[in-house]
């Protein structure tokens, strides 16, 4: 099991969608919204995903496929 903390950013057309509900439905991950700010045309969220690593991977892939910008909380990990 692993816990992954992600920053999600999404634009207007995704704002009204039940993204997190759907994610918990489609994948075996526990979703935990830790921080968020969503208004009419922009949203961001700090989301924790708890589950098996390949299940988290698939959930993240699905988020990205919907057009959500998914990043690790700590910015870029790869350093010079």
């Amino acid at each position: 099991m692993a816990i992954m903390r992600l920053s999600l950013r999404f634009t207007k057309k995704l704002v009204p969608k039940p993204i997190i509900y759907q994610l918990g439905h489609d994948f075996k991950v526990v979703t935990n919204i830790r921080k968020a700010n969503i208004d009419e045309d922009l949203g961001w969220m700090v989301l924790e995903l708890d589950g098996e690593m390949d299940e988290i991977d698939r959930a993240v892939e699905d988020l990205a496929k919907q057009g959500i910008k998914v990043d690790p909380i700590e910015g870029d990990i790869v350093e010079g």
């Binding site: 692993a2 992954m4 903390r5 690593m53 988290i56 998914v70 990043d71 990990i77 790869v78």
Partner: peptide
């Protein structure tokens, strides 16, 4: 791509 490399490393570090 770079985004996925970052995410993977963050995941590995968590596990």
């Amino acid at each position: 791509n770079y985004d996925q490399v970052n995410r993977l490393c963050s995941e590995i570090a968590g596990k």
